[in-house]
Amino acid sequence: MTQTTVKPSLALGTLHTGRLPIPELIALVVGLGCFFAFPSNLGFMTEIVIMILLVLSLDLLLGYTGIASLGQAAMFGGGAYCAGLFALHIHNDPLLGLIMAALFGGLMAGVSGLLFLRAHGLSFIILTIAFGSLTFAVANQLNWLTGGDDGLYGYIMAPLFGAFEFDFFGRTGFLYSLGILLVVFYGLRRLVNSPFGLSAQGIREDRQRMTSLGFPVYRVMLMIYIIAGAIAGIAGALSAQTIQVVGLQSLSFTMSAEALVMLILGGTGRLYGAVIGTVVFMVVHHYAADLDPSTWMLVIGLMLIAVVLFLPKGMVQLVDMTRNKVSRLNGGAGHDNSK
């Protein structure tokens, strides 16, 4: 029955969506709506946009390829310092700095991935944590370059496209970050729905079987790791350019762990899960700002435990559950392709 009515590609059982930038347009509308609705919260909303980018990079690794990294902050902080230093010493054009940071993030991922991706399970996780700790220690050590504990500051970004000043209210910063997010999101959506993206998912499902199908698994994983590193680097650069200061905490384990919490909270393996999780986490964080750091840490810890025990697939699970209920109410049968 279905074969005759649906498009050939759907009849062939693809779960992948088309190439129209509809999700991006929705995000653009929502983003602009927030821009006009909360003009006094632009700084915070910029922070959310930046974190979404970082969490998306982690989703590409973990959600689509099954690479569990606890050191993604290394590339984020690396990109931030790269963009900050580039602006301070070489050129303060934001887009040029962004490109440098993307390259630097990709380079860090490439070098570390080359070493780490042969390891599995516990060893890989430890390596990523250790790499994060190493970058933190290096940035701390090179305080003549990075400013150490005081942070890196004192650079002023040139206007975006030579026309838009980074204003005090953060209007340019927000729109700039939102624009970059939309571009990256579109690219990622194309990527995960491409032959390469399907190969990544095959690796997530069963690495050894992918080898038995003749895939150079290590090489594909390394490419994904580099792409994710570049995206994290871009997120770091945006952070450095919009806040105009880079601190050591951008390289910290807590940063990596928080990004992971946001991803897990939203749900892995779907790009919008990363978006939902980050927004929810950041908003909760914002309103819990009065709490002292210890209490906030307790909240994150409890959130983690609760998600693992009660919501292992994240908040997208709630969406699915509702959707399944609705489709059952509508008498829709055979809804086995919830993904």
Partner: peptide, 14 residues
Amino acid sequence: LQERQQYMRLFSGL
């Protein structure tokens, strides 16, 4: 995709 060596296509749809 492997047999046809097409898996390195990064941005084109399936």
